[in-house]
Design a protein around this nucleic acid. Structure first.
Lengths: 254, 254
DNA sequence: CAGTGGTCTAGACCACCCA
DNA sequence: GGGTGGTCTAGACCACTGG
Protein backbone atom coordinates (compact mmCIF):
# COMPACT_ATOMS: atom_id res chain seq x y z
CA UNK A 1 0.00 0.00 0.00
CA UNK A 2 2.94 2.27 0.66
CA UNK A 3 3.94 2.28 -2.99
CA UNK A 4 0.42 3.07 -4.07
CA UNK A 5 0.21 6.05 -1.80
CA UNK A 6 3.64 7.43 -2.64
CA UNK A 7 2.49 8.41 -6.09
CA UNK A 8 0.03 10.93 -4.72
CA UNK A 9 2.68 13.61 -4.53
CA UNK A 10 0.79 15.48 -7.22
CA UNK A 11 -1.45 17.05 -4.57
CA UNK A 12 -0.52 20.71 -4.17
CA UNK A 13 -2.25 22.61 -1.41
CA UNK A 14 -1.34 25.98 -2.83
CA UNK A 15 -2.58 25.17 -6.34
CA UNK A 16 -5.56 27.11 -7.63
CA UNK A 17 -7.40 23.86 -8.27
CA UNK A 18 -9.45 22.53 -5.34
CA UNK A 19 -7.88 19.68 -3.41
CA UNK A 20 -10.81 17.34 -3.99
CA UNK A 21 -10.48 17.95 -7.75
CA UNK A 22 -6.77 17.20 -7.69
CA UNK A 23 -7.48 13.98 -5.84
CA UNK A 24 -10.20 13.07 -8.33
CA UNK A 25 -7.87 13.75 -11.24
CA UNK A 26 -5.06 11.70 -9.76
CA UNK A 27 -7.29 8.69 -9.16
CA UNK A 28 -8.96 9.12 -12.53
CA UNK A 29 -5.56 9.06 -14.25
CA UNK A 30 -4.40 6.02 -12.33
CA UNK A 31 -7.48 4.09 -13.40
CA UNK A 32 -7.40 5.24 -16.99
CA UNK A 33 -3.73 4.51 -17.55
CA UNK A 34 -4.16 1.05 -16.06
CA UNK A 35 -2.08 1.56 -12.95
CA UNK A 36 -5.15 0.69 -10.90
CA UNK A 37 -7.07 -2.15 -12.49
CA UNK A 38 -10.75 -3.02 -12.44
CA UNK A 39 -11.80 -4.65 -9.18
CA UNK A 40 -8.71 -3.48 -7.34
CA UNK A 41 -9.21 -2.09 -3.87
CA UNK A 42 -8.41 1.56 -3.33
CA UNK A 43 -6.72 2.86 -0.19
CA UNK A 44 -9.27 3.53 2.52
CA UNK A 45 -10.36 7.04 3.34
CA UNK A 46 -8.27 7.01 6.49
CA UNK A 47 -5.19 5.85 4.62
CA UNK A 48 -5.63 8.64 2.11
CA UNK A 49 -6.14 11.13 4.90
CA UNK A 50 -2.83 10.09 6.41
CA UNK A 51 -0.97 9.96 3.12
CA UNK A 52 -2.20 13.21 1.62
CA UNK A 53 -2.58 15.14 4.87
CA UNK A 54 -6.00 16.48 4.01
CA UNK A 55 -9.16 16.08 6.00
CA UNK A 56 -11.41 13.11 5.61
CA UNK A 57 -14.29 15.23 4.30
CA UNK A 58 -12.12 16.27 1.36
CA UNK A 59 -11.13 12.71 0.55
CA UNK A 60 -14.72 11.64 0.96
CA UNK A 61 -15.98 14.25 -1.46
CA UNK A 62 -13.49 13.18 -4.12
CA UNK A 63 -14.43 9.52 -3.74
CA UNK A 64 -18.14 10.25 -3.58
CA UNK A 65 -18.04 12.18 -6.84
CA UNK A 66 -15.99 9.49 -8.54
CA UNK A 67 -18.60 6.99 -7.41
CA UNK A 68 -21.35 9.13 -8.82
CA UNK A 69 -19.46 9.30 -12.10
CA UNK A 70 -19.17 5.53 -12.19
CA UNK A 71 -15.40 5.26 -12.00
CA UNK A 72 -15.33 3.47 -8.67
CA UNK A 73 -17.72 1.47 -6.52
CA UNK A 74 -17.92 1.76 -2.78
CA UNK A 75 -19.35 -0.75 -0.33
CA UNK A 76 -20.18 0.40 3.14
CA UNK A 77 -18.02 -1.49 5.60
CA UNK A 78 -15.85 -3.03 2.90
CA UNK A 79 -13.99 -0.45 0.90
CA UNK A 80 -13.66 1.29 -2.45
CA UNK A 81 -12.96 -0.53 -5.70
CA UNK A 82 -12.16 0.37 -9.27
CA UNK A 83 -15.33 -0.17 -11.31
CA UNK A 84 -15.40 -3.06 -13.72
CA UNK A 85 -15.59 -1.17 -16.97
CA UNK A 86 -16.00 2.34 -18.23
CA UNK A 87 -19.52 1.89 -19.37
CA UNK A 88 -20.93 5.19 -20.44
CA UNK A 89 -20.92 5.17 -24.19
CA UNK A 90 -21.13 7.73 -26.84
CA UNK A 91 -24.85 8.26 -26.54
CA UNK A 92 -24.25 10.72 -23.77
CA UNK A 93 -20.54 11.23 -23.87
CA UNK A 94 -18.53 13.26 -26.26
CA UNK A 95 -16.02 10.68 -27.26
CA UNK A 96 -13.45 10.89 -29.98
CA UNK A 97 -14.08 8.25 -32.65
CA UNK A 98 -10.36 7.56 -32.90
CA UNK A 99 -10.17 6.82 -29.18
CA UNK A 100 -13.25 4.65 -29.35
CA UNK A 101 -11.92 2.59 -32.24
CA UNK A 102 -8.46 2.30 -30.77
CA UNK A 103 -9.78 1.21 -27.40
CA UNK A 104 -11.65 -1.63 -29.05
CA UNK A 105 -8.33 -2.85 -30.43
CA UNK A 106 -8.89 -1.80 -34.01
CA UNK A 107 -7.03 0.57 -36.30
CA UNK A 108 -8.48 4.03 -36.89
CA UNK A 109 -7.86 6.11 -39.99
CA UNK A 110 -9.68 8.89 -41.75
CA UNK A 111 -9.87 10.52 -45.14
CA UNK A 112 -10.69 14.18 -45.67
CA UNK A 113 -13.15 14.72 -48.52
CA UNK A 114 -13.38 18.47 -48.12
CA UNK A 115 -11.97 21.17 -45.86
CA UNK A 116 -12.94 24.66 -46.94
CA UNK A 117 -15.45 27.47 -46.45
CA UNK A 118 -19.15 27.34 -47.17
CA UNK A 119 -22.00 29.84 -47.12
CA UNK A 120 -24.62 28.86 -44.57
CA UNK A 121 -27.96 27.97 -46.13
CA UNK A 122 -31.08 28.44 -44.08
CA UNK A 123 -30.91 25.13 -42.24
CA UNK A 124 -27.24 25.39 -41.40
CA UNK A 125 -27.59 29.03 -40.35
CA UNK A 126 -30.43 28.08 -38.04
CA UNK A 127 -28.43 25.30 -36.45
CA UNK A 128 -25.31 27.44 -36.09
CA UNK A 129 -27.34 30.42 -34.82
CA UNK A 130 -25.82 32.80 -37.38
CA UNK A 131 -27.39 34.84 -40.22
CA UNK A 132 -28.09 33.02 -43.49
CA UNK A 133 -25.17 33.44 -45.86
CA UNK A 134 -22.52 33.63 -43.17
CA UNK A 135 -19.24 32.08 -44.24
CA UNK A 136 -18.49 29.00 -42.18
CA UNK A 137 -15.73 26.43 -42.16
CA UNK A 138 -16.74 23.03 -43.42
CA UNK A 139 -15.14 19.63 -42.96
CA UNK A 140 -16.27 16.47 -44.69
CA UNK A 141 -14.47 13.29 -43.72
CA UNK A 142 -14.84 9.51 -43.51
CA UNK A 143 -13.58 7.51 -40.56
CA UNK A 144 -12.44 3.93 -40.95
CA UNK A 145 -12.05 1.04 -38.57
CA UNK A 146 -9.54 -1.38 -40.05
CA UNK A 147 -10.25 0.14 -43.47
CA UNK A 148 -14.01 -0.34 -43.18
CA UNK A 149 -15.89 2.98 -43.26
CA UNK A 150 -17.89 3.40 -40.06
CA UNK A 151 -18.61 7.10 -39.83
CA UNK A 152 -19.24 9.95 -42.23
CA UNK A 153 -18.62 13.35 -40.69
CA UNK A 154 -20.06 16.62 -42.00
CA UNK A 155 -19.01 19.46 -39.73
CA UNK A 156 -19.61 23.19 -39.70
CA UNK A 157 -17.45 25.40 -37.52
CA UNK A 158 -17.85 29.03 -36.53
CA UNK A 159 -14.75 30.81 -37.96
CA UNK A 160 -14.91 33.57 -35.34
CA UNK A 161 -14.44 31.06 -32.57
CA UNK A 162 -11.95 28.70 -34.23
CA UNK A 163 -10.05 30.77 -36.84
CA UNK A 164 -7.24 28.26 -37.19
CA UNK A 165 -9.57 25.38 -38.07
CA UNK A 166 -8.71 25.26 -41.79
CA UNK A 167 -4.97 24.98 -41.09
CA UNK A 168 -5.29 21.62 -39.34
CA UNK A 169 -4.36 18.28 -40.84
CA UNK A 170 -7.44 16.21 -40.15
CA UNK A 171 -5.98 13.08 -41.61
CA UNK A 172 -3.67 13.04 -38.59
CA UNK A 173 -5.81 14.34 -35.74
CA UNK A 174 -9.58 14.13 -35.61
CA UNK A 175 -11.66 17.27 -35.58
CA UNK A 176 -13.21 16.16 -32.29
CA UNK A 177 -9.90 15.93 -30.50
CA UNK A 178 -8.73 19.22 -32.02
CA UNK A 179 -11.87 21.05 -30.91
CA UNK A 180 -11.80 19.45 -27.47
CA UNK A 181 -8.29 20.78 -26.99
CA UNK A 182 -9.39 24.28 -27.94
CA UNK A 183 -12.68 24.34 -26.10
CA UNK A 184 -14.23 22.65 -23.21
CA UNK A 185 -17.84 22.87 -24.39
CA UNK A 186 -20.31 24.16 -21.87
CA UNK A 187 -23.38 22.69 -23.40
CA UNK A 188 -24.23 20.01 -25.93
CA UNK A 189 -27.24 18.90 -27.87
CA UNK A 190 -27.59 15.48 -29.42
CA UNK A 191 -30.30 14.41 -31.81
CA UNK A 192 -30.49 10.90 -33.20
CA UNK A 193 -32.43 9.92 -36.32
CA UNK A 194 -32.72 6.93 -38.58
CA UNK A 195 -32.21 7.75 -42.25
CA UNK A 196 -31.65 6.21 -45.64
CA UNK A 197 -28.47 7.88 -46.87
CA UNK A 198 -28.28 9.57 -50.25
CA UNK A 199 -26.10 8.22 -53.03
CA UNK A 200 -23.11 10.33 -52.10
CA UNK A 201 -23.08 9.19 -48.47
CA UNK A 202 -23.79 5.61 -49.53
CA UNK A 203 -20.78 5.77 -51.78
CA UNK A 204 -18.49 7.18 -49.10
CA UNK A 205 -19.62 4.55 -46.60
CA UNK A 206 -19.63 1.75 -49.18
CA UNK A 207 -23.05 0.38 -48.24
CA UNK A 208 -25.91 -1.11 -50.21
CA UNK A 209 -28.90 0.93 -51.34
CA UNK A 210 -31.68 0.72 -48.77
CA UNK A 211 -29.45 0.10 -45.79
CA UNK A 212 -30.52 2.38 -42.94
CA UNK A 213 -28.08 4.57 -41.06
CA UNK A 214 -28.04 6.22 -37.67
CA UNK A 215 -27.54 9.92 -37.91
CA UNK A 216 -26.29 11.74 -34.84
CA UNK A 217 -26.39 15.52 -34.97
CA UNK A 218 -24.49 17.35 -32.29
CA UNK A 219 -24.17 21.00 -31.51
CA UNK A 220 -21.80 22.31 -28.85
CA UNK A 221 -21.89 25.69 -27.17
CA UNK A 222 -19.32 27.90 -25.54
CA UNK A 223 -20.33 31.21 -24.00
CA UNK A 224 -23.80 30.73 -25.48
CA UNK A 225 -22.49 30.60 -29.04
CA UNK A 226 -22.53 27.51 -31.25
CA UNK A 227 -18.95 26.41 -31.81
CA UNK A 228 -19.68 23.53 -34.12
CA UNK A 229 -22.55 21.62 -35.67
CA UNK A 230 -21.72 18.14 -36.82
CA UNK A 231 -23.72 15.38 -38.45
CA UNK A 232 -22.30 11.90 -38.01
CA UNK A 233 -23.71 9.09 -40.14
CA UNK A 234 -23.19 5.48 -39.05
CA UNK A 235 -24.07 2.44 -41.15
CA UNK A 236 -26.49 0.49 -39.01
CA UNK A 237 -24.85 -2.81 -39.82
CA UNK A 238 -21.51 -1.72 -38.41
CA UNK A 239 -22.30 0.48 -35.49
CA UNK A 240 -24.85 1.26 -32.85
CA UNK A 241 -24.98 3.71 -30.02
CA UNK A 242 -25.27 2.51 -26.52
CA UNK A 243 -25.04 3.49 -22.92
CA UNK A 244 -25.29 1.65 -19.67
CA UNK A 245 -25.22 3.47 -16.43
CA UNK A 246 -26.37 3.55 -12.87
CA UNK A 247 -29.60 5.39 -12.33
CA UNK A 248 -29.85 8.42 -10.13
CA UNK A 249 -32.15 11.39 -9.67
CA UNK A 250 -30.80 12.73 -12.91
CA UNK A 251 -32.35 10.10 -15.13
CA UNK A 252 -35.51 9.72 -13.14
CA UNK A 253 -36.63 13.30 -13.16
CA UNK A 254 -39.89 13.86 -14.90
CA UNK B 1 -38.49 35.21 2.87
CA UNK B 2 -39.98 34.16 6.16
CA UNK B 3 -42.93 32.49 4.44
CA UNK B 4 -40.64 30.63 2.10
CA UNK B 5 -38.59 29.24 4.94
CA UNK B 6 -41.53 28.28 7.12
CA UNK B 7 -42.48 25.51 4.77
CA UNK B 8 -39.30 23.58 5.46
CA UNK B 9 -40.81 21.91 8.49
CA UNK B 10 -40.54 18.62 6.65
CA UNK B 11 -36.92 18.24 7.79
CA UNK B 12 -36.74 15.53 10.46
CA UNK B 13 -33.41 15.03 12.15
CA UNK B 14 -34.35 11.63 13.50
CA UNK B 15 -35.58 10.30 10.16
CA UNK B 16 -33.63 7.46 8.57
CA UNK B 17 -33.15 9.54 5.43
CA UNK B 18 -30.05 11.75 5.41
CA UNK B 19 -30.67 15.43 6.10
CA UNK B 20 -29.14 16.57 2.82
CA UNK B 21 -31.48 14.21 0.96
CA UNK B 22 -34.53 15.53 2.79
CA UNK B 23 -33.48 19.06 1.90
CA UNK B 24 -32.95 18.06 -1.73
CA UNK B 25 -36.36 16.43 -1.86
CA UNK B 26 -38.10 19.43 -0.32
CA UNK B 27 -36.53 21.85 -2.80
CA UNK B 28 -37.11 19.47 -5.68
CA UNK B 29 -40.80 19.26 -4.80
CA UNK B 30 -41.14 23.02 -4.47
CA UNK B 31 -39.70 23.53 -7.92
CA UNK B 32 -41.65 20.74 -9.55
CA UNK B 33 -45.02 21.75 -8.14
CA UNK B 34 -44.43 25.33 -9.21
CA UNK B 35 -44.17 26.88 -5.76
CA UNK B 36 -40.71 28.10 -6.72
CA UNK B 37 -40.62 29.32 -10.29
CA UNK B 38 -37.83 29.40 -12.85
CA UNK B 39 -35.40 32.24 -12.24
CA UNK B 40 -36.54 32.75 -8.67
CA UNK B 41 -33.85 33.27 -6.06
CA UNK B 42 -33.53 30.62 -3.40
CA UNK B 43 -32.79 31.41 0.24
CA UNK B 44 -29.05 31.76 0.82
CA UNK B 45 -27.07 29.03 2.49
CA UNK B 46 -26.88 31.04 5.69
CA UNK B 47 -30.63 31.63 5.72
CA UNK B 48 -31.23 27.92 5.28
CA UNK B 49 -28.72 27.15 8.03
CA UNK B 50 -30.66 29.41 10.40
CA UNK B 51 -34.08 28.18 9.33
CA UNK B 52 -33.40 24.45 9.30
CA UNK B 53 -30.84 24.42 12.11
CA UNK B 54 -28.40 22.22 10.25
CA UNK B 55 -24.80 22.99 9.46
CA UNK B 56 -23.80 24.89 6.37
CA UNK B 57 -21.93 21.90 4.94
CA UNK B 58 -25.16 19.92 4.89
CA UNK B 59 -27.07 22.70 3.15
CA UNK B 60 -24.19 23.14 0.77
CA UNK B 61 -24.14 19.50 -0.17
CA UNK B 62 -27.85 19.50 -0.94
CA UNK B 63 -27.56 22.61 -3.11
CA UNK B 64 -24.41 21.39 -4.82
CA UNK B 65 -26.04 18.12 -5.83
CA UNK B 66 -29.15 19.91 -7.07
CA UNK B 67 -26.88 22.11 -9.16
CA UNK B 68 -25.15 19.08 -10.58
CA UNK B 69 -28.53 17.62 -11.47
CA UNK B 70 -29.49 20.79 -13.28
CA UNK B 71 -32.41 21.80 -11.07
CA UNK B 72 -30.83 25.02 -9.84
CA UNK B 73 -28.04 27.36 -10.90
CA UNK B 74 -25.65 28.99 -8.49
CA UNK B 75 -23.56 32.09 -9.07
CA UNK B 76 -20.63 32.72 -6.78
CA UNK B 77 -21.25 35.94 -4.89
CA UNK B 78 -24.81 36.27 -6.10
CA UNK B 79 -27.00 33.42 -4.98
CA UNK B 80 -28.90 30.31 -6.04
CA UNK B 81 -31.69 30.34 -8.61
CA UNK B 82 -34.24 27.90 -9.95
CA UNK B 83 -33.03 26.69 -13.37
CA UNK B 84 -34.93 27.80 -16.42
CA UNK B 85 -36.20 24.50 -17.74
CA UNK B 86 -35.71 20.78 -17.35
CA UNK B 87 -33.90 20.01 -20.53
CA UNK B 88 -32.77 16.42 -20.44
CA UNK B 89 -34.72 14.43 -22.96
CA UNK B 90 -35.50 10.84 -23.48
CA UNK B 91 -32.12 9.85 -24.84
CA UNK B 92 -30.78 9.56 -21.35
CA UNK B 93 -33.89 9.74 -19.28
CA UNK B 94 -36.42 7.08 -18.66
CA UNK B 95 -39.54 8.95 -19.60
CA UNK B 96 -43.01 7.61 -20.01
CA UNK B 97 -44.22 7.97 -23.60
CA UNK B 98 -47.66 9.01 -22.36
CA UNK B 99 -46.15 11.84 -20.32
CA UNK B 100 -43.97 12.90 -23.22
CA UNK B 101 -46.87 13.02 -25.66
CA UNK B 102 -49.19 14.73 -23.22
CA UNK B 103 -46.59 17.37 -22.37
CA UNK B 104 -46.31 18.27 -26.02
CA UNK B 105 -50.03 19.01 -26.01
CA UNK B 106 -51.11 15.95 -27.94
CA UNK B 107 -53.37 13.07 -27.07
CA UNK B 108 -51.82 9.74 -26.10
CA UNK B 109 -53.50 6.38 -26.56
CA UNK B 110 -52.30 2.82 -26.91
CA UNK B 111 -53.49 -0.51 -28.19
CA UNK B 112 -52.40 -3.83 -26.76
CA UNK B 113 -51.59 -6.38 -29.45
CA UNK B 114 -50.54 -9.12 -27.09
CA UNK B 115 -50.17 -9.67 -23.35
CA UNK B 116 -49.24 -13.20 -22.45
CA UNK B 117 -46.37 -15.55 -21.67
CA UNK B 118 -43.60 -16.57 -24.02
CA UNK B 119 -40.68 -18.98 -23.89
CA UNK B 120 -37.37 -17.16 -24.10
CA UNK B 121 -35.46 -17.97 -27.25
CA UNK B 122 -31.70 -17.70 -27.19
CA UNK B 123 -31.53 -13.96 -27.89
CA UNK B 124 -34.22 -13.01 -25.41
CA UNK B 125 -32.76 -15.31 -22.76
CA UNK B 126 -29.38 -13.70 -23.23
CA UNK B 127 -30.80 -10.22 -22.88
CA UNK B 128 -32.91 -11.13 -19.86
CA UNK B 129 -30.03 -13.07 -18.28
CA UNK B 130 -32.16 -16.19 -17.75
CA UNK B 131 -31.83 -19.74 -19.11
CA UNK B 132 -33.14 -20.41 -22.62
CA UNK B 133 -36.72 -21.63 -22.48
CA UNK B 134 -37.65 -19.71 -19.35
CA UNK B 135 -41.25 -18.53 -19.36
CA UNK B 136 -41.43 -14.75 -19.51
CA UNK B 137 -44.23 -12.24 -19.69
CA UNK B 138 -44.59 -10.50 -23.01
CA UNK B 139 -46.33 -7.27 -23.95
CA UNK B 140 -46.76 -6.04 -27.49
CA UNK B 141 -48.40 -2.63 -27.88
CA UNK B 142 -48.64 0.37 -30.18
CA UNK B 143 -48.64 3.93 -28.88
CA UNK B 144 -50.44 6.69 -30.70
CA UNK B 145 -50.13 10.45 -30.68
CA UNK B 146 -53.42 11.91 -31.88
CA UNK B 147 -54.20 8.54 -33.51
CA UNK B 148 -50.91 8.43 -35.42
CA UNK B 149 -48.75 5.46 -34.40
CA UNK B 150 -45.43 6.69 -33.07
CA UNK B 151 -44.05 3.79 -31.07
CA UNK B 152 -44.17 0.03 -31.22
CA UNK B 153 -43.35 -1.62 -27.92
CA UNK B 154 -42.18 -5.21 -27.52
CA UNK B 155 -41.48 -5.89 -23.88
CA UNK B 156 -40.29 -8.92 -21.92
CA UNK B 157 -40.69 -8.98 -18.17
CA UNK B 158 -39.24 -11.32 -15.57
CA UNK B 159 -42.26 -13.01 -13.92
CA UNK B 160 -40.35 -13.65 -10.68
CA UNK B 161 -39.85 -9.95 -10.17
CA UNK B 162 -43.21 -8.64 -11.42
CA UNK B 163 -45.72 -11.49 -10.94
CA UNK B 164 -48.75 -9.20 -11.29
CA UNK B 165 -47.69 -7.90 -14.71
CA UNK B 166 -50.26 -9.86 -16.72
CA UNK B 167 -53.15 -8.56 -14.62
CA UNK B 168 -52.63 -4.96 -15.66
CA UNK B 169 -54.75 -3.08 -18.16
CA UNK B 170 -52.15 -1.59 -20.45
CA UNK B 171 -54.65 0.28 -22.54
CA UNK B 172 -55.17 2.49 -19.49
CA UNK B 173 -51.72 2.80 -17.93
CA UNK B 174 -48.47 2.38 -19.82
CA UNK B 175 -46.10 -0.42 -18.95
CA UNK B 176 -43.40 2.14 -18.25
CA UNK B 177 -45.39 3.98 -15.62
CA UNK B 178 -46.54 0.68 -14.08
CA UNK B 179 -43.00 -0.64 -13.81
CA UNK B 180 -41.65 2.65 -12.51
CA UNK B 181 -44.20 2.53 -9.72
CA UNK B 182 -43.11 -0.98 -8.77
CA UNK B 183 -39.38 -0.51 -9.16
CA UNK B 184 -36.94 2.23 -9.04
CA UNK B 185 -34.40 0.70 -11.43
CA UNK B 186 -30.83 0.71 -10.26
CA UNK B 187 -29.23 0.45 -13.62
CA UNK B 188 -30.21 0.92 -17.23
CA UNK B 189 -28.78 0.10 -20.62
CA UNK B 190 -29.84 1.83 -23.80
CA UNK B 191 -28.87 0.77 -27.29
CA UNK B 192 -30.01 2.68 -30.35
CA UNK B 193 -30.04 1.25 -33.85
CA UNK B 194 -31.39 2.18 -37.24
CA UNK B 195 -33.47 -0.56 -38.85
CA UNK B 196 -35.85 -1.28 -41.66
CA UNK B 197 -38.88 -2.75 -39.90
CA UNK B 198 -40.38 -6.04 -40.96
CA UNK B 199 -43.83 -6.28 -42.51
CA UNK B 200 -45.56 -6.85 -39.19
CA UNK B 201 -44.04 -3.79 -37.54
CA UNK B 202 -44.59 -1.75 -40.70
CA UNK B 203 -48.22 -2.68 -40.57
CA UNK B 204 -48.63 -1.78 -36.92
CA UNK B 205 -46.94 1.57 -37.43
CA UNK B 206 -48.67 2.24 -40.76
CA UNK B 207 -45.52 3.25 -42.63
CA UNK B 208 -44.30 2.75 -46.18
CA UNK B 209 -41.92 -0.05 -47.13
CA UNK B 210 -38.34 1.15 -46.97
CA UNK B 211 -38.90 3.81 -44.33
CA UNK B 212 -36.21 3.53 -41.67
CA UNK B 213 -36.98 3.38 -37.97
CA UNK B 214 -35.09 4.11 -34.80
CA UNK B 215 -34.97 1.15 -32.50
CA UNK B 216 -34.23 1.78 -28.85
CA UNK B 217 -33.55 -1.29 -26.74
CA UNK B 218 -33.56 -0.80 -23.03
CA UNK B 219 -32.79 -3.15 -20.20
CA UNK B 220 -33.29 -2.19 -16.58
CA UNK B 221 -31.81 -3.87 -13.53
CA UNK B 222 -32.83 -4.19 -9.91
CA UNK B 223 -30.61 -6.06 -7.46
CA UNK B 224 -28.45 -7.17 -10.40
CA UNK B 225 -31.34 -8.93 -12.11
CA UNK B 226 -32.91 -7.83 -15.38
CA UNK B 227 -36.44 -6.67 -14.64
CA UNK B 228 -37.46 -5.91 -18.19
CA UNK B 229 -36.09 -5.84 -21.71
CA UNK B 230 -37.99 -3.63 -24.11
CA UNK B 231 -37.55 -2.77 -27.76
CA UNK B 232 -39.17 0.46 -28.87
CA UNK B 233 -39.48 1.16 -32.57
CA UNK B 234 -40.05 4.72 -33.77
CA UNK B 235 -40.85 5.70 -37.37
CA UNK B 236 -38.08 8.06 -38.32
CA UNK B 237 -40.46 10.45 -40.01
CA UNK B 238 -42.44 11.04 -36.84
CA UNK B 239 -39.97 10.91 -34.03
CA UNK B 240 -36.36 11.43 -33.11
CA UNK B 241 -34.43 11.15 -29.91
CA UNK B 242 -32.68 14.12 -28.50
CA UNK B 243 -30.96 15.55 -25.48
CA UNK B 244 -29.48 18.88 -24.62
CA UNK B 245 -27.60 19.35 -21.43
CA UNK B 246 -24.84 21.12 -19.64
CA UNK B 247 -21.49 19.40 -19.83
CA UNK B 248 -19.62 18.15 -16.82
CA UNK B 249 -16.90 15.64 -16.03
CA UNK B 250 -19.38 12.90 -16.68
CA UNK B 251 -19.73 13.57 -20.38
CA UNK B 252 -16.12 14.51 -20.92
CA UNK B 253 -14.50 11.42 -19.55
CA UNK B 254 -12.38 9.56 -22.08
C1' DC C 1 -14.31 -7.12 17.01
C1' DA C 2 -11.71 -3.59 14.13
C1' DG C 3 -12.06 -1.39 9.84
C1' DT C 4 -14.88 0.70 6.54
C1' DG C 5 -17.70 4.29 4.49
C1' DG C 6 -22.04 7.67 5.35
C1' DT C 7 -23.25 11.59 7.60
C1' DC C 8 -23.04 15.74 10.30
C1' DT C 9 -21.17 19.75 12.92
C1' DA C 10 -19.11 24.34 13.98
C1' DG C 11 -16.03 26.66 12.89
C1' DA C 12 -12.70 28.98 9.25
C1' DC C 13 -10.67 31.46 5.06
C1' DC C 14 -11.26 32.87 0.57
C1' DA C 15 -13.00 34.75 -4.09
C1' DC C 16 -16.67 36.63 -6.08
C1' DC C 17 -20.41 40.16 -6.87
C1' DC C 18 -22.94 44.33 -6.17
C1' DA C 19 -23.60 48.71 -4.33
C1' DG D 1 -18.35 47.14 2.42
C1' DG D 2 -21.57 43.10 3.37
C1' DG D 3 -23.53 39.13 1.46
C1' DT D 4 -22.78 35.23 -1.39
C1' DG D 5 -21.12 30.60 -2.50
C1' DG D 6 -16.60 27.36 -2.75
C1' DT D 7 -13.60 25.00 -0.05
C1' DC D 8 -11.41 22.92 3.88
C1' DT D 9 -10.60 21.23 8.67
C1' DA D 10 -10.77 18.21 12.85
C1' DG D 11 -13.39 16.28 15.13
C1' DA D 12 -17.76 13.11 16.01
C1' DC D 13 -21.35 9.30 15.80
C1' DC D 14 -23.24 5.71 13.36
C1' DA D 15 -24.26 1.43 10.28
C1' DC D 16 -22.36 -1.78 7.72
C1' DT D 17 -18.93 -5.50 6.67
C1' DG D 18 -15.80 -9.17 7.47
C1' DG D 19 -13.49 -12.47 10.46
Amino acid sequence: MKAILDSFDAIDKSAPQPLYQQIKNTIHDKVKNGEWKAGQKLPSENELVAALEVSRMTIHRALRELTQEGLINRVHGLGSFVAEAPRHASLIELKDIAVEVTQSGKQHSSRVLALDTKQADETIAHNMQVPTGTTLYFLHAVHYQDDIPIQLEARYVNPDLVPEFLQQDFSRTTSTSFLLKQFRPEEMEHIVRAIIPDARARDALRIEPGEPCLQLSRRTWKNDRVVTYVTLTYPSSRYDLGARYAVNDFQMRQ
